[in-house]
């Protein structure tokens, strides 16, 4: 049967497994990123990590470890630049991550030898997924799941109101550092499947769709993860048939889901509007009263 044809290829099965894990992981991390209005740092970090990946490769250093460390250090550098200097975080992200990305491009353009491999990292490619990638993705997924399971209460408070969380004794500086490390790890393992340029959308779209559908934090996290998995798996499956790069295919599908969810939430809101609504209620994403 033609629809099952791609599963005859080992690379495609690996790609679908990777898509499943990466889609869920990015969307899960995305919940926290979106709620803390950090979308831009996700986008920037992906570019910074590309530079780190190229440097690791040029120095024959382990790709996963090198790129993750590079991403983590970039996040710390951004935080330091903003704290110690009169520079806004958006500007700091723009400088640090683009410079890092430019460094990667500069090294590539001098060494034409490994251009092909990094094309996959830029745009995402199902052909690039190897066994080692899947193991790396699984390791990061398990680590992220464990950290968030045990520190769930602290992450919720820190995401809701970091300043006040500090007053309640939550080690917010540590949590931010751990979060940056996990985000760097997520981007590194997702890079070859989705592509540097597409990761930001994979991280942001699913949680936004989930937010449009629910007012509960736990439900938003679960819905976001499920939507992320769905878009990623279906997007990569589709990419085989329409012959489009995997990252682009996933992002276009996600964007379509977003538009549908937005339309749905507006229709629901319009239908539920009544004079009894309390002030500000109409701004609720799902328009429900209870």
């Amino acid at each position: 049967m033609a629809l099952l044809e791609p599963f005859e290829f080992g690379f495609f099965v690996r790609a679908i497994i990777a898509a499943f894990l990466v889609g869920g992981l990015c969307a899960f991390m995305g919940t926290y990123i979106v709620l803390r209005s950090m979308s831009y740092i996700g986008h920037g970090l992906a570019h910074a990590i590309f530079g780190g990946a190229v440097v690791s490769s040029a120095m024959s250093f382990n790709f996963f470890v090198g790129a993750t460390l590079w991403g983590f250090l970039s996040a710390l550098l951004i935080a330091w630049t903003t704290r110690k200097n009169p520079i806004g975080s958006d500007a700091a992200i723009g400088i640090v991550t683009t410079a890092s990305f430019a460094l990667g491009i500069a090294i590539i353009s001098r060494n034409h030898g490994f251009t092909h491999d990094f094309e996959a990292a830029l745009w995402g490619s199902v052909l690039a997924v190897e066994r080692a990638d899947i193991i790396a993705i699984a390791v990061v997924t398990i680590a992220v799941a464990a950290v968030f399971f045990f520190a769930y209460k602290m992450f919720l408070f820190n995401t809701f109101d970091s300043d006040v969380a500090r007053f309640y004794g939550i080690p917010t500086a540590w949590m931010d550092a751990v979060f940056a490390l996990m985000l760097a790890g997520t981007v590194v393992v997702s890079m070859r499947v989705l592509g540097v340029t597409m990761i930001a959308a994979a991280v942001v779209i699913a949680p936004i769709v989930a937010r449009l559908l629910t007012n509960s934090f736990v439900k938003m996290t679960i819905l976001s993860t499920l939507i992320g998995i769905m878009c990623s798996v279906i997007g990569i499956y589709m990419s085989y048939f329409i012959n489009v790069s995997s990252g682009a295919s996933v992002v276009l599908l996600s964007a379509g889901v977003f538009v549908a969810a937005l339309a749905w939430s507006r229709i629901r809101r319009a239908l539920s509007r009544s004079p009894a609504d309390a002030p500000g209620l109409s701004r609720l994403p799902d328009g429900s009263l209870e």
Binding site: F149, F150, K153, Y168, G169, I170
Partner: peptide, 11 residues
């Protein structure tokens, strides 16, 4: 949230 640090590692 006010109880977060009573058992910080308990989910």
């Amino acid at each position: 949230m006010g109880r977060t640090m009573a058992n910080p590692w308990l989910p």
